[in-house]
Design a binder for these strands. Structure first.
Length: 708
DNA sequence: GAGCACTGC
């Protein structure tokens, strides 16, 4: 692309926010005004009473209006955020919490669960943790009198392990179901079954009548109401079909202004993408009305390179045209800087990853630049390898991105691809369950009593090979018997531990080898990312020295163990929580350790220590006997072992893949003969991460050779 | 000698 971008972009006459719909929108707006809140409440409750399953679709305004003719039945129109906080209160008022029953509201993330719970408690003017509470991994604020309980999907799934009928809930609302996370998908499938079981049990109870009070007490269950909230119409259709034609109700989304969509006319080759991007950014900066720009990029590298290009180009502009401020965001630490308004007269250009699609809202954005790509993680079950690569975005993502320009006023979205390429995009991103390692999900299902995994009623079925692989892995880890039944007690214990099956296996083995204390720390440290900080240039040398101080010749696991223990030595038993935080923060800063990661690891440690103690494990330390601990690592992670080749590369024993030690490993230079590792990921090369040097003889003998 | 979108138990 050599000419100016002006010539390359044309307005799409059929953009999803075409003005032809404005009449309709106006009508809906009038309709909404005529609806007092009381009648909204009444009609919503009526719908819940009439329908055991209700799907509530709340798209951003424009998209919703276009598609509303596709939905039958009367539309109930209120504001979406209102619904999220009001609906549970409506249900409470309507008596759904009588007799100690609860309305459960599940969210994919902790932050959402906490935020909404706080807001509802405020609206109801009650103390958080009483009538309204939330429950997330490290924080449960509910009590026996809680009626409205906000929680994460994953936690609700865990609850089903203890109470398979989820009998304390009269209504469960699953929010953000369109995100299609593994947890949401499994939860939706589970709830379908729970609802069926509870109807059955309730019918039996009523049939029994007063024949036997004992039976009645035992089956004291009432039917379960389900409300599924989805922001995407496509997914709402999928859910409706999945639940046997469940009724879908439409809700007006938040106010959305018109966004003009502009496509490029000529295809962009990869080589020109950066150039086209920068040209587009400057075209907006120099020719468009005030308003900040949001650019969607795939990762840190790309963000930094575009930032550099923008700065370079700015230097060639006359002084008065230089008022453009590039703001990179690729980690949540940078969020504060982007939400602050630009200095007077300046235009911000926010260079963001897909984090800016949904997770955060940046004020002031009127222009969006969308190259149409996203970095996506996929999992190859045959190789046990994750891949992180750049792929085309989906239509839903493209719409979401363009929608970001219309939050505060009419906006423009510049798509750096042709309209026909948009048409070729997938409707929505593949559900996570179709692109991840299934061993955790399958172990949970087995523990919940679902034996027939191939016949399980998934909304989107994962591939047969992915299921086969996960079952095989679980057998090798000792969670399942040879005929794929839950192994007792190990399988059940593993399902109850809140970590990946390989890690729970490691904890069980460590318990038997008397190095559980070490393994708890190891698993906690492996469960968080990037223990070490990336220091600024001037501190690199200092950081290297510090890292060398921690580095263990045995590998990363012992290194992490050392970091955790050394940080712990600075603490005293009587330190208050705030003091602990402060001491650790300082220690981390001095030692180039990521304090957020370390704090998170300490939380996980506490959590899993509690779990293993509950199982009756005795947390003992191997003291200075690191040999026993390393043998235990080998026995736990034997599925991921690699052997050095003549040329210095490694061969992963299970898959036969040729792999490289990742440069962040402490073993990067020493290249021991045989290692176990925790992660195999393909980026520019196939890298193994988090390794420990082992003796090949320690590997589980029954797995790699035939001798006993 | 490499970089890593986002969650969650």
């Amino acid at each position: 692309m050599t000419s100016t971008a002006q010539g390359e972009l044309k307005q799409n006459p059929k953009s999803p926010v075409d003005s032809g719909f404005s009449m309709r929108r106006q009508k809906i707006a009038e309709h909404r005004k005529s609806l007092p809140i009381a009648s909204v409440e009444k009609s919503l409750i009526e719908e819940v009473q009439k329908n055991d399953i209700l799907i509530i679709v709340g798209e951003t305004g424009s998209y919703l209006i276009i598609n509303s003719q596709l939905v039958s039945g009367p539309s109930c129109i209120i504001c979406f955020f209102l619904l999220l906080t009001e609906l549970p209160q409506f249900l409470f008022n309507a008596g759904f919490c009588r007799g100690g029953k609860m309305v459960g509201i599940s969210q994919p993330s902790c932050i959402a669960a906490v935020t909404v719970a706080k807001r509802v408690a405020e609206e109801c003017d009650v103390q958080l943790g009483q009538r309204v509470g939330y429950s997330i991994m490290f924080d449960d604020t509910t009590c026996s009198s809680t009626s409205l309980k906000y929680m994460t999907d994953a936690l609700l799934l865990r609850e089903a392990l203890v109470d398979p009928l989820l009998s304390r809930y009269s209504v469960i609302i699953v929010d953000e179901a369109h995100e299609r996370t593994v947890h949401t998908d499994v939860l939706l499938a589970l709830l379908k079954k729970v609802q069926l079981d509870r109807s059955k049990a309730a019918n039996e109870t009523s049939e029994i009548g007063n024949k036997g009070l004992e039976v009645q007490a035992k089956t004291n269950v009432s039917p379960l109401k389900l409300i599924i909230m989805s922001a995407s119409l496509d997914d709402a259709r999928v859910f409706s079909e999945y639940y046997g034609g469940a009724k879908a109700l439409h809700v007006q989304g938040r106010r959305q202004f018109t966004v003009d969509i502009l496509y490029t006319v000529h295809p962009e080759t990869d080589y020109y993408v950066d150039a086209a991007l920068v040209i587009t950014i400057f075209q907006i900066h120099l020719e468009e009305k005030p308003g900040d720009i949001l650019v969607f990029l795939t990762g840190q590298d790309e963000i930094e390179s575009v930032e550099r290009l923008v700065k370079e180009r700015l230097e060639h502009l006359p002084e008065d045209k230089r008022k453009l401020l590039p703001l990179p965001i690729f980690s949540s630490d940078q969020l504060m800087t982007v939400s602050a308004p630009a200095p007077i007269g300046f235009r911000k250009v926010v260079l963001a990853t897909s984090i800016a699609e949904t997770s955060i809202t940046i004020p002031g954005i009127r222009y969006v630049v969308d190259p149409g790509c996203v970095k996506a993680r996929t999992y190859d079950p045959s190789k046990g390898m994750e891949t992180l690569d750049v792929v085309p975005a989906s239509k839903t993502q493209a719409l979401q991105r363009s929608g970001r320009a219309g939050r505060e006023g009419p906006g423009k979205c510049f798509r750096l691809y042709r309209e026909r390429e948009f048409e070729k995009m997938e409707d929505s991103t593949k559900p996570e369950i179709k692109r991840c390692n299934l061993s955790n999900v399958i172990l949970q299902l087995k523990a919940l009593g679902y034996d027939d995994i191939f016949g399980f009623d998934f909304i989107d079925k994962p591939s047969r090979s992915a299921i086969v692989k996960a079952l095989a892995e679980l057998r090798l880890l000792g969670a399942l018997t040879d005929d794929c039944k839950l192994e007792e007690p190990a399988g059940d214990q593993m399902a109850r531990l809140p970590v990946d099956p390989v890690y729970s296996r490691a904890l069980i083995l460590a318990n038997q080898s008397y190095c559980l204390e070490e393994m708890l720390i190891t698993v906690a440290m492996l469960s968080v990312e990037s223990i070490f900080c990336d220091p600024p240039r001037e501190k690199r040398e200092e950081a290297r020295t510090s890292r060398n101080h921690f580095a263990s010749v045995e590998g990363d696991h012992l290194t992490y163990l050392g970091v955790y223990r050394e940080s712990n030595e600075f603490l005293e038993a009587e330190n208050s929580e705030a003091e602990v935080d402060e001491i650790l923060r300082k220690w981390c800063k001095d030692n180039f350790v990521n304090s957020r990661s370390l704090k998170h690891a300490r939380d996980i440690y506490r959590q899993i220590r509690g779990s293993v103690e509950q199982m009756g494990f005795n947390v003992s330390s191997s003291g200075n006997d690191m040999l026993e601990y390393r043998r235990c690592l080998a026995a736990s992670f034997f599925l991921k072992a690699a052997q050095r080749q003549m040329d210095g590369t490694y061969r992963a024993l299970e898959s036969g893949e040729i792999v490289h030690i990742h440069p962040t490993s402490v073993l990067f230079r020493s290249k021991p003969e045989c290692v176990i590792f925790n992660e195999l990921m393909q980026t520019s090369k196939k890298y193994i991460k988090n390794l420990t040097r082992i003796d090949p003889l320690w590997l589980a003998p029954h797995h790699y050779n035939t001798e006993e």
